[in-house]
């Protein structure tokens, strides 16, 4: 705990300010991520939770500048990584950072690797992109990397194709690719959702281990609050493209403030119904085209909703030191004079 506390004073590694990401749907841009701000400090693991469709992946793709071209774009906001603004970079500039300083693991291990290239080729590519290294060295290094992510017989796997590997092994390969250049920040977008339960635990264990050894920061996106409790220092709760609560992990579990968080936590105990957990809250996340223009976006599902929740938009603000909430139950979230 004392180590974590000392982190708080350090300059952030990543600072996202007022990020707005929009998708073109039939000619109009709709915000999938709306005015999101947060910081990630060195060596910190920040969890991002929220139901399906609330903008977690879009947010992480925005940081990596990996939004689908021509469809999604960062409309406004800043993404400052290690003192430099990523959102203003050209493709060539960001390519020097992607895979080297910031890496990402995706939700879909089955399709994230190129089916017609060997594991070795795809692993060595990231090394060739960012380091001066001979073919021989790259091969040896890729074997070592595969070994370090817990793949047995790496000398053999290195020459195999993705279809010869299981989902868990493919995700391990993705992790190996992501950590090959020892990045400062790893974004793991639901790295275990597509895997079966026993494999999930191993992968998370592995991530935690690598994080400690490499001293890197991690943004861990997950559906699973159990994982958050296990792994994270800080937690961001997202709903419908916005952050609704952000605090350290202990506070979140012992003193949740936002009704959505409370419902998420209340839904936790059913340990075996993995998929059901978050969806056990009544209703669904509004789609991009259906987003309420004013008021709290959670209002139609919130058990504590008040009439003003439908007309006043709550702001994300500190209720306590280091505990931000966006809910009209708290004075701090009510708009003040002169502030929209």
């Amino acid at each position: 705990m004392s180590k974590k506390k000392s982190l708080l004073k350090e300059a952030p590694l990543l600072e996202v300010k007022n990020l707005e990401t929009a998708f073109d749907i039939d000619g109009t841009y709709y915000n999938a991520v709306d005015n999101v701000s947060f910081k990630v400090k060195p060596r910190q693991i920040v969890g991002v939770v929220g139901e399906s469709g609330c903008g977690k992946s879009v947010m992480s793709l925005s940081i990596m500048q990996l939004l689908p071209k021509g469809i999604g774009k960062v409309k406004s906001g800043e993404i400052i990584f290690d003192g430099i603004s990523l959102e203003k970079m050209t493709e060539g500039q960001i390519n020097k950072i992607r895979g080297k300083d910031v890496s990402m693991i995706f939700q879909e291990p089955m399709t994230s690797l190129n089916p017609v290239f060997t594991i070795g080729y795809q692993l060595q590519e990231v090394l060739f992109n960012h380091t001066k290294i001979s073919k021989r060295e790259a091969r040896l290094k890729s074997i070592a990397l595969l070994k370090s992510v817990g793949i047995s017989r790496p000398e053999k796997i290195v020459d195999e194709y993705p279809h010869q590997l299981s989902g868990g092994m493919r995700q391990r390969v993705m992790i190996a690719i992501a950590i090959a250049c020892q990045p400062k920040l790893l974004i793991a977008d639901e790295p275990t959702t597509a895997l079966d339960v026993t494999v999930q635990a191993q992968i998370l264990e592995l991530l935690k281990e690598i994080q400690e050894v490499n001293d890197m920061s991690v943004i861990l996106i997950t559906h699973d609050l159990g994982v958050v409790a296990e792994m994270c220092d800080e937690v961001i709760v997202m709903y419908a493209g916005k952050i609704v609560e952000r605090t350290d992990v202990d506070t979140l579990f012992y003193n949740p403030k936002h009704p959505y968080t409370t419902l998420l936590l209340g839904a936790v105990p059913k340990m075996d119904e993995e998929e059901e957990r978050l969806s056990s809250i009544k209703g669904i996340v509004p789609s991009l085209t259906n987003m309420p223009k004013v008021g709290c976006r959670f209002a139609n599902r919130c058990p504590k909703a008040m009439p003003e929740c439908f007309t006043t938009t709550p702001m994300l603000a500190d209720v306590d030191q280091g505990h931000e909430v966006a809910c009209l139950l708290y004075e701090t979230s009510k708009p003040r004079e002169g502030v929209k």
Binding site: L66, G92, G99, T111, S112, L113, F117
Partner: peptide, 27 residues
């Protein structure tokens, strides 16, 4: 070009030209 593996290649810092000429074309 819309496949997940293209996104992975971009996430590795692979230049656009190589993504088309190698990753996509080979498929």
């Amino acid at each position: 070009s819309r496949k997940d593996f293209v996104r992975t290649a971009r996430a590795k810092g692979t230049p656009e030209r190589k993504i088309y000429n190698v990753h996509i074309l080979r498929n």
